[in-house]
Write a protein that binds this DNA or RNA. Sequence first.
DNA 1: ATTCTGATTTTGATTGGCCAAAATAAAAAG
DNA 2: CTTTTTATTTTGGCCAATCAAAATCAGAAT
Lengths: 220, 220
Amino acid sequence: MASSTVENYLKHVYLIGQTSDQDLVAMGQLATAMEVTPGTATSMIKALSDAELVRYEPRAGVALTPQGEKLALHVLRRHRLVELFLVNVLGLSWTEVHAEAEELEHAISDKVLERIDTYLDHPSVDPHGDPIPPATGVMDTPTLASLADCPLTQPTRIARVLDQDPGFLKFVDRSGLTPGRGVVVQHRDPAADAVTITPDSQPPVTLGTHAASKILVESE
Amino acid sequence: MASSTVENYLKHVYLIGQTSDQDLVAMGQLATAMEVTPGTATSMIKALSDAELVRYEPRAGVALTPQGEKLALHVLRRHRLVELFLVNVLGLSWTEVHAEAEELEHAISDKVLERIDTYLDHPSVDPHGDPIPPATGVMDTPTLASLADCPLTQPTRIARVLDQDPGFLKFVDRSGLTPGRGVVVQHRDPAADAVTITPDSQPPVTLGTHAASKILVESE
DNA sequence: ATTCTGATTTTGATTGGCCAAAATAAAAAG
DNA sequence: CTTTTTATTTTGGCCAATCAAAATCAGAAT
Ligand SMILES: [Mn+2]
Ligand SMILES: [Mn+2]
Ligand SMILES: [Mn+2]
Ligand SMILES: [Mn+2]
């Protein structure tokens, strides 16, 4: 049985690997994500390497083995199904469920997980628009444009928000930029590093390019 | 923050204390319940004593302080609400939920807990008939007779089953002796150490006195 | 080619939980 | 009263996960 710690390491290797073009995750990034010192990450990764869950290249970085990836995706499935369940069934806010799921993802049995999946009618995305890895088969992660780079003045739909910080999510929520909402990107001002968006039936909002790049859209 | 281990120790001290007339729980019983060696229990209890969660009398036993009892009841509340939720909402069998709740009881936040409580409309007992400690105030644990000692030939109702073993619970389930069901105790045979019961609209069952004593009833 | 710098690894130490087995104390038996 | 039994505590050690700080390495800069 993998401990919560092991599950968290594998999940973070997977998540960092997704948002980076390199095929190896640097130890520094991993240590930062796990909120441990670099030495701690190194020794843990060595242990995971002995357990065949990761491939470790000293001074270069780390990648998941097929076995490690399977486990990471299973944790991610639990995390995201739990988030959706907390929002849709128990009525928690999508801005807060991440922290809850961070604990519950390690405590849910396969049986309970599949009941939740059935109860929710086999959903494909969580409250943040993150795709839910299926029990079997591969997860499709469509490549999406963001508010920082999608076409201007076209009606589009918010598909995914790439940040779990409750402060940021509350701002997104207040501004009407939640997943599923229709929006139009009005214009961009490179000098001011700003993007102005009009969400359907809400006042326009201006946000910085960095924030805009964390909000992904799909074309209508 | 109390670790899962600490929470489990406190819960077991509480539970053993409930089913015993002595006011101190013996280290041996606790070690057995926690499935650790006696020495491990001793050193853990010393630590809990330093943390003011228990009162420890060397060579005599251990009891919860008010603070420790509060924490134990909070864990028990989580455990029992989770069990009921798993049965009533996700449709798991009452014979299996104990093991699930044993993990989840440590991973549920106060916020989620109170949502579950609201969703279930503030229930007072779990699927086994065990009382659910309220968020505030005292839990009432009515003194109940068992199938081994209640009056004969009187219509009564199964109120509580004092064993979490899935094998035993499945037998109870098959026999129609689940909490809420009406039954009549037909007769007892001290020589055979046996009790014969007729559950409403089910064939009669005969069980040993020890098993009968774990099934509690309330008068109609 | 040499030096510097930043990332990484190593080393030595700590903490929480655990076990095995020896030591001890209390209770039961004689 | 002693002796024996049984419960409990102590001792010494292990493993997972962590940190602080020293050592090392690789690439960048000179
Ligand atoms: Mn986690
Ligand atoms: Mn999410
Ligand atoms: Mn538990
Ligand atoms: Mn129960």
